[in-house]
Computed example of a mutant assay.
Amino acid sequence: MSFHEVRFPVSVSFGSTGGPERRTEIVTLASGHEERNSPWAHSRRRYDAGLGMRSRDDLEVVIGFFEARAGRLHGFRWRDWSDWRTAPSDRAIEPFDEEIGVGDGVSAAFQLSKTYLSGPTSYVRPIEKPVEGTLRLGVGGVQVFDGYALDTATGIVSFDTPPQDGAVITAGFEFDVPVRFDTDVIEVSMGGFEAGEIPSVPIVEVRV
């Protein structure tokens, strides 16, 4: 898949709508009971960037971005303003926000992730598009400043020396969502746009 490591204009994405989508298959039995199953291990996010366009300048920026991605052909980065960092909005990012692995003395590469908790249930989401320059890393409860490298295209942290057995690896960071346009057509009526009619610009998360 062709992916461009460029972010959709954040001034437009801030006013967009969207969020996570799950796929659930439900079969209702003769008794009235249900059998439910999901073929997806991870959610998939959908957005509409149209609602973020407030001026002709915004429209021109979106059309330019759309053309540069050739419609649905190339993926790109998207900031989900409802979920884009490991720390709560009222707290600074810390190197101990998320546990991303435990050392075994052999493994040197670890995938960034974010864990969502609700009661006794949790969901671990792989993060593959961290924002460059935002990573803070911890090993064994101590922040580390060197001896590792981050691939911002995959979200994999690679240590020069494998962390020792039992050492908990933690991280804090900002991240984007890998997406693409979910249409090859943007229909705009300038008269309607000036009157407040906003074109739909659907965007969908992609697996990378």
Rank of each mutant, 00 (worst) to 15 (best):
A109S: 15
L135F: 08
V27W: 07
T86V: 06
F76T: 06
R46Q: 14
E21Y: 08
R46C: 05
V131Y: 01
V102P: 01
E34M: 12
H4F: 09
S200I: 11
E21G: 07
G52N: 08
R22T: 13
T24Y: 03
S55I: 10
V102A: 11
E35C: 07
I26G: 00
G191K: 14
F145E: 09
V144A: 01
H74P: 00
D182W: 12
L59R: 11
G32K: 12
L59W: 10
D151K: 04
R79P: 01
R77I: 01
A171Y: 07
Y148L: 03
L59M: 15
G196W: 10
S113V: 10
G103L: 04
G103H: 07
I127K: 00
F110S: 00
I203K: 01
G166Q: 10
R77E: 00
R54P: 00
A68F: 10
W84N: 14
T152E: 06
E5Q: 14
A149C: 02
G105A: 07
S189N: 15
G15D: 05
F145V: 05
V124K: 01
L135M: 09
V6D: 10
R69M: 15
T115W: 04
P163L: 09
L51F: 07
E67D: 13
G140M: 10
G141D: 09
R46D: 04
S16R: 05
V10N: 06
E187S: 15
E132G: 02
I203A: 01
R46A: 13
I93D: 01
D97L: 04
R79G: 00
A153M: 12
P162Q: 08
L51R: 09
R85M: 13
V179Y: 02
R36M: 14
R91D: 09
L73F: 11
G119N: 11
K114C: 03
H33Y: 08
D57R: 15
V102D: 06
Y116L: 09
E194K: 14
L135K: 03
W84E: 03
V12E: 03
H74T: 03
T17V: 13
T121G: 01
V10A: 11
L29H: 13
G52V: 08
Q143I: 03
I186N: 08
T161M: 10
E128S: 11
W78I: 03
M190I: 13
L51T: 11
V12M: 12
R56P: 00
R136C: 02
E187D: 15
Y123M: 08
S13E: 04
S89H: 09
A70C: 12
R46W: 06
Y123P: 00
